[in-house]
Amino acid sequence: MKTMIILLQTLMLIALAPLLSGLIRKIKNNLRMRKGAVVVQPYYNFFKLMAKEEVISENVSWIFRITPYIVLSTVILALFMVPVILSEAPLNITGDFIVIIFLLSAGRFFMALSALEAGSAFGGMGSSREMFISSLVEPIALLTVFAVSINAQSTSLYAVFMQNNMQVSAVIAGMALLFVAIAETSRLPVDNQKTHLELTMIHEAMVLEYSGRSLALIELAGYIKQIIFFTLTVNIIIPFNLFPAGDIFAVSLNIAVYFLKLLTLCALIGFIEVMSAKVRLFRVVDFLAFGLVLATIAVIIALLGY
C-alpha cells in the first residue's frame, strides 16, 4: 500500500514538474506586463521535442547517448526518496537526505562528460562552469542537511519533514537551500535559462548538442530536479506536517498547504528572476558565499538547540 502511494506520488510529481516552470515563466511575464505563453507551454515543448528527429554530433560516443537516461533516472530515484504524502517511511532505510544530493551529482557528472563529447568550445565551457558552481554549492547543501538533520536527530528525510514545530535554524537552513535551489536549477542570477548567447550559458551550453527526444528527457529531468529542490526548501522552512492528525482530511489539508507553499515559492523565484540580472561567473562565488554563511549560521543555531 505504502509503496503504491509512493509510486503514485512520484508519478504525480513528475507530471506536475513542468507546470512549475510554466508557472514561473507566466509570473515573470505578468510582472513585466507581458502576456507570455500559456502555463502549459513546457508540456507542449516536451511533446514537440519527443516527436522530432535527433541530430547528434559525429564525434560523440555511447556516453552521449545514455546520458539523458542516466540523468532522468537519477532524478526520478531522488524524487522517490522525497516524502510528500506519507508521514511514515516505507523506503526510509534505503536512502536519506545525503543520498539525494549524491544522486543528483551523479546525473550532473554524466551531463558534464557528455558536454565534452562533441568537441566544441561551448560544451567544454558549460561543463567546466557547471562543475565549478556545483562544487561551490555542495558544502552549502551539506551544511543545510546537517542543520535540519541535527534538529531531527537523523539524516532521514522523513524524520526531517515530520518535525511539526518551526525551528529558527530550519528557517535559516531553508533560506540557504534557496540559494542552492537557484544555482542548481540554473536560474538568475547564477545562470540564465532563457539566454540565446552561447557565451553566457552554463547549463544551456552543456546541452547545446542535444536535440529531439534526448533534449526532451534532459529538460524533464531539469523540471524534476527543480521540484525536488523546491519541495525540500518549502518543507524545511514550513514543516509539512502542520496538521498531524492521521485521518484523510488532515492529509489532504497538508497536501493543499504543500501546493500553496510551492506556488508561493514559484512567485518568489519569479520575482527574484525579474528583479536580478545575471552576475559574472566569478561574482557567483560571492552570491554562494552568502548562502554558505547562512548555512553555517543555521548549523550553529541548530547545535544550540533552536
Partner: peptide, 29 residues
C-alpha cells in the same frame, strides 16, 4: 560540521577533477 563541509566541497572538486581527467583524455577529438 565544519569537517563535513570540507568533505562536501572536496567531493564537488573531486567530481570536477575527474570529469576533467576522463573527459579531456577520452572524449572529444
Amino acid at each position: 560540521c565544519f569537517y563535513a563541509a570540507v568533505l562536501a566541497i572536496t567531493g564537488g572538486l573531486a567530481a570536477a577533477c575527474f570529469v576533467k581527467a576522463f573527459g579531456v583524455t577520452f572524449l572529444g577529438l
